[in-house]
Amino acid sequence: MPQNLHLIVALAMTFAAAPALAQSPMPGGMPPPPGMSLAESTAMRFPQPVRVGDLTDRLILQPVESQIILGRVHAVVRNAQGEVSVVMNFGGFYGYGGRLIAVPIDAMVLLGDEMEVVAYTPKQLAGFATFSADGTTPVADDAFLKVGLAKPSH
C-alpha cells in the first residue's frame, strides 16, 4: 500500500473513532491550602532542578483548563533576603507587552516547557507592584533552582 494511502486510511479511521483529547479527571495546579507557606507548597510538589537560562522566555499560564497565558519569563532575580523571584511581563497579549512584575518562584510550578502561577490569581497579580531591579541581582543562567511540578490543568 502506498505511504500516502496508509496515512489517508489512518486519518480516516482516527476521525471515525474520534479519540479522546484529555486524560485529566483530577485538576492540576491547585493553589496551596490556606495557611501553607509558598515554600511548603513547593516542597509537596516534588521540586526538580531546572537551569535558570532554560526558563527565560517560557510562557506562564493560569492553571485553568483554558490555559490562559499570563505572560512570559523575563528574568530570575534574588533579593537581599535571598528570596528568588521570576520577573514576568504581565497584562500584555500572548505573553508580549504589559508591565514587569516579580513573582516568588515558590508561587510557580513547572509544566513541561511552560510555567504556571498556582499561588496567585490574575487579579492578585494585577495588584503586584511594577518590578524595579533596585536591591535585586540577576540569577546566573547556568545556576540551577528547584521548582515544584504540577500536572496539566486542561
Binding site: Q23, S24, P25, M26, P27, G28, G29, M30, M44, R45, F46, Q48, P49, V50, R51, D54, L110, L111, G112, D113, G148, L149, A150, K151, P152
Partner: peptide, 16 residues
C-alpha cells in the same frame, strides 16, 4: 532534552 520532563498522571503531583 527537556529537563526536567513534564509530569502527568491521572492525579496531581502532590498525590505521587
Amino acid at each position: 532534552i527537556l529537563r526536567p520532563p513534564k509530569f502527568n498522571a491521572y492525579y496531581d503531583v502532590t498525590d505521587v
